[in-house]
Design a protein around this nucleic acid. Sequence first.
RNA 1: GCGGGCGUGGUGGAAUGGUAGACACACAGGACUUAAAAUCCUGAGAGGGUAUCCUCGUGCGGGUUCGAGUCCCGCCGCCCGCACCA
Length: 877
Amino acid sequence: MANATERLNERYNPREQEPFWQRIWSDRGTFTVTDPDPKDPYYVLEMFPYPSGRIHMGHVRNYTMGDVVARYQRAMGKTVLHPMGWDAFGMPAENAAMANKVHPRAWTYENIASMRKQLQSMGFSLDWSREFATCDEDYYHRQQELFIDFLEAGLVTRKTSKVNWDPVDQTVLANEQVIDGRGWRSGALVEQRELTQWFFKISDFAEELLTAIDGLDNWPEKVRLMQRNWIGRSEGLKILFEIAERKTGAKTVEVFTTRPDTLFGASFIALSPDHPLAGELAKSDEALAGFIADCRRMGTSAEVIEKAEKKGFATGLQVNHPVIDGARLPVYVANFVLMDYGTGAIFGCPAHDQRDLEFANAYGLPVLPVVLPPDADAESFVIDKEAYTGPGTAFNSGFLDGLEVEAAKDAIAARLEARTIDGKPQAVRQINYRLRDWGVSRQRYWGCPIPVIHCDTCGVVPVPKADLPVRLPEDVEFDTPGNPLDRHALFRDVECPECGAKARRETDTMDTFVDSSWYFARFTAPKADTPVIPEVANKWLPVDQYIGGIEHAILHLLYSRFFTRAMKQCGHLDVAEPFKGLFTQGMVTHETYKDANGAWVAPADVVISAEGGDRTAKHATTGEVISIGSIEKMSKSKKNVVDPDEMIETYGADTARWFVLSDSPPERDVQWTEAGIEGAWRFVQRVWKLVSDAVFVLETPNDVLVADDAASQEMLKASHRAVAQIGADFAALRFNRSVAQVYELTNAISRFLPQVAQEPSLTRLKALRVSVEHLVQMIAPMMPHLAESCWAALGHKTLVCDTPWPKVDQSYLVDDVVVLAVQVNGKRRGEISVPADASNGQIENAALSLDAVVRILEGQAPKKVIVVPKRIVNVVA
RNA sequence: GCGGGCGUGGUGGAAUGGUAGACACACAGGACUUAAAAUCCUGAGAGGGUAUCCUCGUGCGGGUUCGAGUCCCGCCGCCCGCACCA
């Protein structure tokens, strides 16, 4: 080892140190979990990445957070499972194939190789021996087994659903490929098409998925709320309306409503354009057929449909009002009524539903209020531009008059249930869910083939498990749009496994959400020749801490919750919930820059200078003036991306890790700044210098006697407090606070160190060693390489990552004197120092004798004195 | 459109309903240096008094409370999701 004086002048060199420690961790298999029966298992997982080719700062942030949790839990004595893999199927590979004539497989695996290298340079404590990609034959083989298990368990169904159809490219488009109603490549107006597709019956689990949210108490409340709303349980009434003049085959229209109490205020019926009755009427009504065709040019996403201008078409058909004798309601077809929800038909009560009101105003339909707000007057209450949706009592409503909303719902339900129409009860109480079944069919090549065969005589036949996997053929062409599997005769044309007749293989592949709905389970036994090994999976699952983006708050997490239940039903697992703890992190943002022509400029090409506080930007090479724009999520299109590779190259992984953990609360967006990364770099150097200086001092002889040891006491207090605080913050994933605590501890040691150097008593040297070792252990989960280097410099032969978390001495955490703020009428006027065990009376006396308090009270007795122990005193004058 | 979230100094942010601005970045002044970088020290929410005192202050407008950044109601702005992007 070099001598200490020499080391003082040495800067920390991450380029040397980081690969050195990474090699040691890897050679020793430090993070590889082999124990089939682990003690104190702890499973930490970050959402696995799509292999786009390069990691971005969002990945760095996500995986750094997970790594801190993993390393902290290891230090706490847990056996930590921390795996990594690749969400490797999906559209970008096919797009690359079309654009660059590369095979999706080659493109994907090349991307994986370069991203793996990048991730490895970050020094994450990952068990790389468990790595897999969802496009690995071995993985999708097991997924096909699961599909067949689900099929046999009745969890899978086939039904029709709508897709975006590009009439020029003759292909199905994803929602993101539809831009302003047109196909992204062809520019053709998109049409809706009905296709028969495969569905997982997630809606069978709606109630279970909803109620189980209550038990997910380590999930963010916002995500639980979003999932509840997404499932959208509503209690309502299904009402039959009798068609007044029979111009149709149907005698009735069935309507679902959650507000049957407003039935007396109904002024129209609206059908979805996809409603069978609408279709029937359109056969003899060209204008209606035209209207429906217009609606079908809208795309299939709920967002597009609901944002579109509300339009309706009067069919001329009328229905009898169920409870107002002789009254009839017109039947419209309306573009905002969704066939997927309820019965695909609604009754409109404009006074008490905003959308209905706008529709009624547009088409001149009557607006009759039937719910009277608590303080309103029945004579003068009118509805103008705002529908009233609050509580109240029924009026203008015949036998319902005077009833509160809930009572009125019951009364109308009871009345209609008792009647029959067309041989059926006129109304049925029903619980309805917004959640729809999960359509998993994709008309694409680069996905997991759906393992079934269609036979004219035997129908749908699952591929026998012995014949799995159904492999993706290699020899495919991407010259023409559409699914190459569909054109691949060898893949498509097969014999029926049951009767041996000519049959057709399913050419749809699975939604990539299927791949990511069970990968966390596969990680527990990644090489098993069954999807999972139940005993092993049950030991590790549920994932103790799952970390990923808020953008997955609903779909991915809900699908995974469903999949885990489905796997349980098929005997693969014994747990229902996949993720015990969930944390959703924010995005990484950066300033945007534009040149004089309005073109985006990358941060790497911009030089910022700050004079007095005004920041100006110039182009690094041309010197052109650059305008500084808003802060946005890093994206290729706006060029405001920072390449983690360059950061690691310049500053090292620890600096990048430290930066993404600093400042911003992890659930919020973090802004990447050059100043910030330099600050992080300086801190890395500062820690190294501090530890080097401390090592030098610790090596000095300790024969000086110092009587007053207050400094050591203060140092140890700060040190133990930091350990307690940082541990709590790591456990709660409040990394920004851990960072601030580390700064404080570093500052405290920096102040203490010269005192020790001056008078190196045994007590002081001990306190110094304890504090510096604590510091190194505190930074170890965040900056693991630097921590190992410091740990070695302190003379340890062990790895800091194998060292247990320090024990907190509780006696250092209590104060014997506390400072209380004193307020008068809620405004701070001073403070008092009192013993921690002072009585409320003593505190009150001390507060009232403060000069500022005496002055403001002007001799008057206070009305009240509120003493909050260890917090505050408020004098009410 | 619907559902969810966020909004605090020049900047990122801290704050179980209890001293708003911890910690950091940037900035300014000083020390060291031939000089610079690095490092160290000091200062700072705004306005006034220029002392250690006063007023205002957490997107805007109300409310609850002894006390509100925090809870409630109504706005404004930004962000996420909306079922075939992953």
